[in-house]
Amino acid sequence: MDVSLKGKVALVMGVENGVGRALAVAMAEAGADVACCATRPSLEVAAQSCANEVWALGRRSLGAAVTATEAHELEALVDKVMAELGGLHILVNAHDLPLALPLEETEPHYLRRVLADNVEAVYLAIRAASRPMLAQGYGRIINVVPLEAERGLANASAYCAAKAAVLNLTRALALEWARRGITVNALGCGWIEGEGLAQSPEAKAALERYLPYKRLAKPQEVVGPAVYLASEAAGFITGHVIWVDGGALSHI
């Protein structure tokens, strides 16, 4: 079977996160050239460091940092990727702005920010990348979602709403582009050390007792199936989520 990504160019958004960075590296290991983009201008160093890791694997790369909610910056980013890496075949959206507060402490502008950074930014990244993908009739879009996209969690109403939105926009765009060569899927991640709401100090100990594997995952453990989704071999899969959660969602 061939899940090699040789000859493909991937754009990974959110490389400042552990999962985003691991995804960029995994795509490079599988043979893709990878543009590594952080989702705030202040995170340029993280993006360059990720790009350097891709170079060290012998792939071409570029590092960038944008305001991920600004459509024109994303358009310019896609142009830059096309110009410098010669194409765009794979878009990975690993954006993540965590928030865990009771509703009565969630100020209206916190909610707007959570929706903007977790949903609007993903939508706009897809919108920018879809231009070349629709023109060439080929694309692989992978949205990274946490367990909060599928299940509720106390103190996480805004975050849960945002992540569920990403999961269902995945399904809608899959249907919209089903006959245009673009698949749209999600990588569903379980609890990962230092990521998302697992950053909460009290969460880790409780989760280690609860989870089937009795531990949280490292980012590198959850990204493999995304390489499969990004490959030509997965062309019949669209509109779905592949969960890599160690069995967390199997619980009642």
Binding site: G188, G190, P212, Y213, A217, E221, V222, G224, P225, V227, Y228, I242, W243, V244, D245, G246, G247, L249, S250
Partner: peptide, 8 residues
């Protein structure tokens, strides 16, 4: 590659 996939 799927060692962390379980019940999926």
């Amino acid at each position: 590659l799927a060692d962390h996939m379980n019940g999926a």
